[in-house]
Each structure stands twice: as C-alpha cells, then as structure tokens.
C-alpha cells in the first residue's frame, strides 16, 4: 500500500514541471490517495506470463518512408510563437 506523502507529491511536481499551491497540494494528496487505494484492486489479478498490451493494433505499424517535405502552414506555425525575433522563437535563457 503506497502512502501519498508530501515528499512524493513534491517529487512528482518536479518531474512534471508543475508547482501546486499548498491548498492544491493538500487536495491532490487526498484525491490521489483515494485513487491509488482503489488501484490496489489490480493486485487480485494474476498476470503471470501475460504480455503487456500497449496498443490494440495487431500488426506492427507500417511507417512511411522518411522523406523531408515542405509544410504549407509555416506562417501559421510562426503566428503561434509566444515570442518571435526575426522569424525565430525567442526563449528564456537556459542557465538563468
């Protein structure tokens, strides 16, 4: 049985690049504990020798050949940039 602790939630926030307020964190801990307790149900199932099913598709996906193509909507992509400088995306400094 997993106990949802404040440390665990802080660790997950860091991994998910989220930062909850203390109030949100407390609420999440409670809901999360309830959900994880419910998931204990799966301990009843014997999965010895059962392969995981990552997709319902039976056959291996056939991939298209890797050929560079021009994309028609380049201006639209640029119009979605949060911040632009001379046709490039401007981003905050990585080392700040």
């Amino acid at each position: 049985m997993i106990r949802v602790t404040r440390e665990l939630v802080l660790h997950l926030e860091n991994l998910a690049r989220l930062e909850l307020s203390e109030e949100e964190r407390i609420r999440l801990m409670r809901d999360f504990q309830e959900i994880l307790d419910y998931m204990e149900l799966l301990n009843e199932v014997d999965v010895q020798g059962v392969e995981p099913m990552y997709t319902p598709v039976e056959d291996p996906a056939s991939l298209r050949t890797s050929e560079p193509r021009f994309f028609d909507g380049r201006e639209l992509i640029k119009s979605n940039f949060p911040e632009e400088e001379k046709g490039h995306i401007r981003v905050p400094g990585i080392h700040q």
């Binding site: 992509i77 979605n80 940039f81 949060p82 911040e83 995306i89 981003v91 905050p92 700040q96």
Partner: peptide
C-alpha cells in the same frame, strides 16, 4: 510555453 500556446515568463527556462 516554448513553441506555441500560453507562455508565462519566469526567470530562465525552467521557471517559465
């Protein structure tokens, strides 16, 4: 917040 959608600026990339 890098390529599209909402961006709220923080100090540096991680905080953003």
């Amino acid at each position: 917040g890098v390529k599209y959608g909402l961006r709220l600026k923080g100090t540096g990339l991680r905080e953003t």
